[in-house]
Amino acid sequence: MRHGMRFLSLPEMVSRYVHSGATLYIGGFAFDDPLAVAHEIVRQGIRDLTVIKSSGGIVVDLLIGAGAIRRLLVSHLWNSVGPTPAHAFRRAVERGQPPIELEELSYGAFTCGLLAGGMGLPFMPTTPLMGTGTFGERTFLPDKLATVRSPFDPASEVVVVKAIAPPLGIFHVARVDREGTAQILGPVAETRLAMAACQRVLLIAEEVVDTAAIRSRPECTVAFGAQVEAVAVVPFGAFPTDCHGYYRRDLAYHLEYAQATASPEGFEAYVAREVRGVADHGEFLARLGAERLAGLATRQERWWSVA
């Protein structure tokens, strides 16, 4: 296969591709949320990002609190265990600490925007959103939504969403082979659309598997190597969310995060300890302990049996 896909370490990947001021799509929808990437972005002191993500969660809350995000396009943002407040997000939006520019789409409109981006089309008809706040309120994307007359029925007005085509996306997947064929072993949410929409795609994967395992379940493939710029292998890269087939979400960690980050001082201490206080994701995991991680593991043989 003649393309430039390469394996990199996560720190190398982030320093090579993610620069301050960049626009970055982050994959995952409260599962496959790449916390390892968020930690590395914070460790490298990257700032002023425009982040596009369907479902915020701890990954985006952490990036906001650490001052890495200037602009944010999301469909929702919360800590879904409890549910518990996403404190950094709330401080930013309620008190401007730190200030962010927030733009929102409903999840359906968000996926339709990615579909348009992935198809190379300028816009896509989407959910009728007339009269909603999501339609009316606009910040840094003043033309995110519009209405057009249907060319096939002049009486009908259709809500359309502008294409979302991020220059760069980083996604957590379950596994890859040496050729960069990437698989997710469960629901994919908007992953395929988002990968298609992003001009360049970076992956972090739990492991590299033999290509025979990939070929035994081709329906799980979300990207093939030619679509992928680079891959970093990062076990438990989506901790504390689910990576189906590998591990479940760590419920307690979601609450520990919420409690630790409830105040600005607490947030700073948390980042100093858990993020800047470790060299890399491996050390972060080592501190959590092998026993805790083993308790989350769900590796099921059905994904590896090669017929």
Binding site: F29, F31, V188, A189, E190, R249
Partner: peptide, 22 residues
């Protein structure tokens, strides 16, 4: 704890995408 908490996925009928569901 949420639809993305896959402890309820083991006997699922389907694992689709958002476009299909919505």
């Amino acid at each position: 704890t949420s639809p993305c908490d896959f402890r309820f996925m083991d006997s699922a009928v389907a694992a689709l995408g958002s476009m299909e569901a919505l």
